[in-house]
């Protein structure tokens, strides 16, 4: 652990930028797979922030949460991709605009 480390603010800033980029992807992209990948990007951004803070406060909990987020992400990807496959089967499209049955 070096004393000439990068300030935690920079990590958090980077993570914030990555996060908002992911969010923009989620909102703006219509390809379901890309939306999904954007979600992954957001998760990673959050992970980065967590890791940075974990180092700042020398706490193992941050690492643990990152670990759990990764696990949950894996589970989410499994189910999400299964959903996409199923939607594609029925709709022959992965444009999420075609899926709006749940309107009020």
């Amino acid at each position: 652990m070096g004393s000439s480390e990068v300030a935690v603010e920079l990590y958090v800033l980077l993570s914030a930028v990555l996060f908002i980029m992911g969010a923009m992807g989620v909102v703006l992209r219509r390809n379901a797979i890309l939306v999904f990948m954007s979600v992954e990007l957001m998760l990673n951004a959050a992970n980065l922030a967590l890791a940075a803070f974990a180092r700042q406060w020398a706490s193992g909990s941050g690492h643990l949460v990152v670990f759990f987020v990764m696990t949950v992400a894996a589970a989410e990807v499994a189910v999400g991709l299964a959903l996409i496959v199923t939607i594609f089967r029925t709709k022959k499209s992965i444009d999420i605009d075609t899926v709006h049955m749940f309107k009020g």
């Binding site: 480390e5 990068v6 990590y11 992970n47 974990a54 180092r55 690492h63 670990f67």
Partner: peptide, 10 residues
């Protein structure tokens, strides 16, 4: 970056 944050496992 994780590595740089001394989180080699992550």
């Amino acid at each position: 970056l994780f590595l740089m944050l001394s989180a080699p496992f992550l």
